[in-house]
Each structure stands twice: as C-alpha cells, then as structure tokens.
C-alpha cells in the first residue's frame, strides 16, 4: 500500500499539521513503510468476527445528574495562551 504526496497533504490538513515539501517526502517513505506493515491485516480471515472496541466486555456506568463542579475559571485561564474578559481568544473566525 503506497500513500501519495497528495494523500499526505490532505491528511495533514485534516489533522491541522503544517508540513513542508521536504517533510512530505520523508512522510511518504515513513507512512508507506507503516502502511506496508499494517497491510498484514488483510491476510487475516475476519469473516463473521465482531470488531472489538474495548478489551473488557463492560457496559457504561451512568452518573447521577448532580452538579459537582465549581467555578475555577481563574485557575484554568492562568495557564491559557490568550484570554480577555473571561473569554479564550482565537484568531477571528469568518463564517
């Protein structure tokens, strides 16, 4: 299984990671090797095998609807890159 430069560039946009041409070349080789390794999977006979998402066959526990959290904005925003008037700041989003 090979992965093309175009695929890598597309995936990098989806993952929001900037890559330059040189990195794309390196990734083409590395990701190609990883996907070759992964392609061993196609040999497995998985006819009528249910996918396994969790190692333990457990079911979800549900929490009672009770407020347990208090305002800790000051502590959380002390470690934020940019805030103003209690808001987190990000570059303007145009919709």
């Amino acid at each position: 299984m090979t992965i093309s430069r175009k695929d890598i560039e597309k995936v990098a946009v989806l993952a929001r990671i900037q890559v330059d041409d040189e990195q794309v070349s390196a990734l083409e080789k590395d990701l190609g090797n990883i996907l070759d390794l992964v392609d061993q999977l196609s040999a497995a006979d998985t006819e009528s095998v249910e996918p396994l998402a969790h190692p333990l066959d457990a079911v979800q526990r549900l929490r009672p609807d009770e407020v347990t959290e208090t305002d800790q904005r000051a502590a959380f925003q002390a470690i934020a890159p940019a805030t103003e008037n209690g808001l987190y700041l990000a570059p303007r989003v145009i919709e």
Partner: peptide, 18 residues
C-alpha cells in the same frame, strides 16, 4: 478517513478480537 475506515480501523478491531 473516508474510504479507508473499513479496511483499516474496522479490520484492525476484528483482528483485535481474534
């Protein structure tokens, strides 16, 4: 990503059960 989910992710989860 679209088009690869079954071949990779789902397949891997099935192998995981095996």
């Amino acid at each position: 990503s679209a088009g690869y989910f079954d071949a990779y992710y789902l397949k891997a989860q099935k192998v995981r059960r095996l």
